[in-house]
Design a binder for these strands. Structure first.
Lengths: 191, 191
DNA sequence: CGTGGAGTTGAATACGATCAACACCGGTGG
DNA sequence: CCACCGGTGTTGATCGTATTCAACTCCACG
């Protein structure tokens, strides 16, 4: 049984496939680097379970600048929380590497609720609450930590991601420009 | 049945008491304005269901500045997501008004999982996912919206809160200084 | 009255954004 | 093999915005 409630929380579950849980409504696709899976404004946002490769979700503000909301390496589920209301998607989602993706239709979530074994529930709940914790921490960092502190925290929390994405995307995730991150890092080395 | 999974997601549930669900491990307390319910570093963070009054959760950064993470008016549950790991609390929680509070021990969450009626589950899940959506939106706003945009969004989303807390606390929630918010607002009126 | 918290305003400062130039590297094609 | 190119990252100069520090007003409350 894979982590399905995790759809809601983008939780990691490395071991198996979603499709073994719920046969219907899940299809496997291959996407190439740069391919867009979901656009801002799309109706009926979907979930994307990453079997291999790397996705990202992001917004584009009214000045055309990208802001990365999250990265999705193997075993993670990338999705837009707007999905549950059937509301238009707030996030873009595209591939940073060639990837194998299982696409989860919103309707499957309902289906899942009727099928979940009870003993599985606490685990799923913990995974969701863990995601809430991650978002809580991100908000606190954005409000109260310096760029350097946020960068150090990111490197420590996601060391594998740092090596796979260009630095300008880390900057985007941290909420600063690539130039600012570059300068802060070089300042740090001198200090 | 009140919203208990909501503990994880700070969800609102106006109608009834938590204590009717699970007799044990819940105690009712009265706190006065200014009273501190939880400190940063406390072991075993608790949940606080607000029967009446108003709570807030916040951090204090290494320069001594407060940053409000959330407000908790009647019917909301305020808590620190660190609770689930038994980790030290990351947030302070105190009362902005005299309040009646039901204190939820972490152990009760486990107990709840064994008792929840199945037909209640989808509702609880939706509430949790709604909280994830709220946090997602907050992150996006912090990264991509101006102070004025964030303020307008806050007023529209929580009109009742704006009237009950001093403006400096709204500024703290938005991630700016009270002076900056004051100036942005007066600029806006002229324009 | 007087006191303290809240909000506003102004001046100086700090920090990140913006704009521009350049070095570096990895591919591609001549 | 080399010349070219696009993407990336660095650095510098300038600009804009929020922070900081300070003074002042306003009000609620003793």
């Amino acid at each position: 049984m894979s982590s399905f409630l995790a759809f809601l929380g983008f939780e990691k579950d490395f071991e198996d496939n979603l499709s073994s849980d719920i046969g219907s409504s899940i299809k496997l696709i291959s996407v190439k680097k740069g391919e867009v899976l979901q656009k801002n404004g799309d109706l009926k946002a979907k979930g994307f379970f990453v079997k291999s490769g790397l996705l990202r979700s992001y917004t584009i503000d009214n000045k055309g600048k990208e802001h990365i909301f999250m990265f999705g390496p193997e075993g993670w589920i990338v999705g837009d929380m707007e999905f549950h209301a059937g509301a238009p998607a707030a996030l873009y989602i595209d591939a940073l590497e060639d990837s194998e993706i299982e696409v989860i239709e919103p309707s499957v979530v309902e289906e899942f609720f009727e099928k979940i074994p009870l003993e599985q529930l606490p685990t799923e709940i913990k995974r969701m609450s863990n995601r809430l914790l991650v978002l809580q921490k991100r908000i606190i960092m954005l409000m109260s930590a310096s760029v350097l502190e946020r960068y150090d925290d990111f490197v420590q929390t996601y060391p594998h991601i740092v090596q796979r994405v260009p630095q300008r995307m880390v900057a985007s995730y941290l909420g600063v420009t690539p130039e600012a991150l570059s300068k802060v890092k070089s300042e740090h080395l001198k200090g």
